[in-house]
Design a protein around this nucleic acid. Structure first.
Length: 572
RNA sequence: UGGGGAAUAGUGUAACGGCAGCACUAAUGACUCUGACUCAUUCAGUCUAGGUUCGAAUCCUAGUUCCCCAGCCA
């Protein structure tokens, strides 16, 4: 933290202040005022009941980077207060995802369940103060007594039990004397409050269930509202950052902490969750996509999950830079997925090595090139990063090029191969198309070219220019592979916006996955490790998939390169 | 019909009573051994109506629209 201006006079604005989002502004102000003695402590508190997605990443990056920027600490805490929904499998995947994203909790890994005894003791404190009571009403009755949005609730007949009776009942709840649903512990606040969360909220329910960490030690479990503030308090959190739907819960968060003696009281701050075009983000819908097999698991590269994006080839830096670009505010917005894709391209452009691959091959024979000759040509690995060095690519008399890099009756604006036209084979030679060989049906079998030996490496000594440069792979030396090409899972920007009788599933794009076999790769692409991110020149960014083997490499399309030529063609 | 929030180019986000700015998208051009990258240019905005003020996106009043809340989920 820097020495921040103290508001001594009537000039309350620091003219040198950087533009901060509203959350950082609060943190900065607190640091300036010494509210928390200069301390900043944040946390990411997932419930281990599913996989993390890009929306969670926004929260992870927000919390961890605020801690970092203000010299504070960042905790990872599992909010595991509902044993029937939670599993260790999720704990493991969440830890993996958070770590992968680069959010470092160091030795501060916590579980809400570690605090169950302390929470119980605090509940006893509230009972003794006459601020909590055991209720025998069942769930349906509680709902009826609660009233509605526009009408007040009414007190439970059990609301005025004595502290002694409540203490006894609560202990017996803990000891397992009652069945699920038979009794609950409720806070005694205000059954007529305009805020339904304050109408004597349930603090504990009875759940005879196996907890993934505490086993059968407990059969009463704290509700979110009771547990969450206590967890934050115990960990010394200063800024408890959560999403907008908890705004209505803040009075309750504060009430619990205000009514306990001598506890640390963090500030809850709410921000808008992330929405993205062309996808869905709710846990329920994501789960449905997986269980109904509309996608191939949680880590399907079309999923907005962290694991899906990782498999897709997004790097942690891609996601972090995206989260920072979208900013944080209280406006319920939907970010254009194009912004995510921009961040991915920008990051991958800087970091990924270039290679040549031909997805839709057609054979080219260079008729004046010596038969049987092979030479190895130098290729630059990454023009954005000289340190990436060079490699050698085998060249021969027969090569594959992309089918759409050739056109028989080409318009003037077509800069690629066409009868009579000269182009550059990347890192190799200038070639000129002389002839086209077709089958009886008129399909192109081979393209015959001649090359200019003087242009070896791709430069002509006479200063002659060509307009086009195309990529290629040697017929004699290559690796055959599979490529999985992805587009947005949904065909429309807002998949959840459906007419009556339809669901978001009807908006799935059935062609969002295309498996392409018979792809030719330059040899170096056959030796890369799973997860390696590369650029196929002139095509896009790709990465080695989990299913890849040395015998049969599999590459995922991460994101295509921008293609102004394709765009121009669509308009014609 | 209750309460709590939010509204700034197509999208996201700044501007803290003093020149409405940035990024993405789109379009155009330059450059180019990737029709990529990069660079340049352009299109485009304060929810509405009043008021306060020399001056309002910002303050006030009224309205409009959107989001959240009636789990023993988080």
């Amino acid at each position: 933290m820097s020495e921040t201006t103290n508001n001594t006079g009537n000039d309350s604005v620091n003219p040198n202040r950087e533009s901060l989002d509203f959350v950082r502004q609060i943190v900065a102000d607190d640091c300036a005022s010494g509210k928390w003695k200069g301390r900043v402590a944040t946390r990411f508190p997932p419930e281990p009941n599913g996989y993390l997605h890009i929306g969670h990443a926004k929260s992870i990056v927000l919390n961890s980077s605020i801690a970092q920027e203000f010299g504070g600490t960042f905790n990872l805490r599992f909010d595991d207060t509902n044993p029937v929904k939670e599993e260790d499998e999720y704990v493991q995947s969440i830890m993996g995802d958070v770590k992968w994203l680069g959010a470092d909790w160091q030795d501060r890994l916590f579980f809400g369940s570690e605090y169950f005894q302390q929470m119980y003791d605090w509940a006893v404190e509230l009972i003794k103060k006459g601020k909590a009571y055991v209720d025998d009403l069942n769930a349906e009755q509680i709902r009826e007594y609660r009233g509605t949005l526009t009408s007040p609730g009414k007190p439970s007949p059990y609301r005025d039990r004595t502290a002694e009776e409540n203490l006894d009942l609560f202990e017996r709840m803990k000891n397992g004397e009652f069945a699920n649903g038979e009794k609950v512990l409720r806070a005694k606040i205000d059954v007529e409050s305009n805020n339904l969360n304050m109408r004597d909220p349930v603090m504990y329910r009875i759940l005879h269930a196996e907890h993934h960490r505490t086993g059968d030690k407990w059969c009463i479990y704290p509700m979110y509202d009771w547990a969450h503030g206590l967890e934050d308090s115990l960990e010394g959190i200063t800024h408890s950052i959560c999403t907008l739907e908890f705004e209505n819960h803040r009075p309750l968060y504060d009430w619990f902490l205000d009514n306990l003696d001598g506890v640390h009281h963090p500030q809850q701050i709410e921000f808008a969750r992330l929405n993205l075009t062309y996808t869905v983000m709710s846990k329920r819908k994501l789960l449905q996509l997986v269980t109904e097999k509309h996608v191939n698991g949680w880590d399907d590269p079309r999923m907005p999950t962290i694991s899906g994006m990782r498999r897709r080839g997004y790097s942690p830096e891609c996601i972090r830079s995206f989260c920072k670009t979208v900013g944080v505010a209280k406006f319920n917005s939907t970010v254009d997925v194009a912004l995510l894709e921009h961040c991915v391209r920008a990051e991958l452009n800087k970091t990924s090595s270039r290679y040549m691959a031909v997805l839709d091959p057609v054979k080219v024979v260079i008729t004046n090139y010596p038969e049987g000759q092979v030479e190895y040509l130098d290729a630059v690995n990454n023009p954005e990063d000289p340190a990436a060095g060079t490699r050698q690519v085998p060249f021969g008399r027969e090569i594959y090029i992309e089918r759409n890099d050739f056109m028989e009756d080409a318009p003037k604006k077509f800069f690629r191969l066409s009868p009579g036209r000269e182009v550059r084979l990347r890192y190799a030679y200038f070639v000129t198309c002389q002839d086209v060989v077709k089958d009886d049906a008129g399909n192109i079998l081979e393209i015959h070219c001649t090359y200019d030996p003087a242009t070896r490496g791709g430069d002509s000594p006479d200063g002659r220019k060509v307009k086009g440069t195309i990529h290629w792979v040697s017929v004699a030396e290559n690796v055959k592979a599979q490529v999985r090409s992805y587009s947005h899972l949904f065909a429309v920007p807002d998949p959840e916006n459906v007419e009556d009788g339809k669901t978001f599933l009807d908006n799935i794009d059935k062609d969002s996955l295309k498996v392409i076999d018979g792809v030719y790769l330059e040899p170096a692409l056959g030796k890369l490790e799973v997860g390696t991110r590369v650029q196929f020149e002139r095509l896009g960014y790709y990465c080695v998939d989990l299913d890849s083997t040395p015998e049969k490499p599999v590459y995922n399309l991460t994101i295509n390169l921008r293609d102004t030529w394709a765009k121009a063609q669509k308009k014609m």
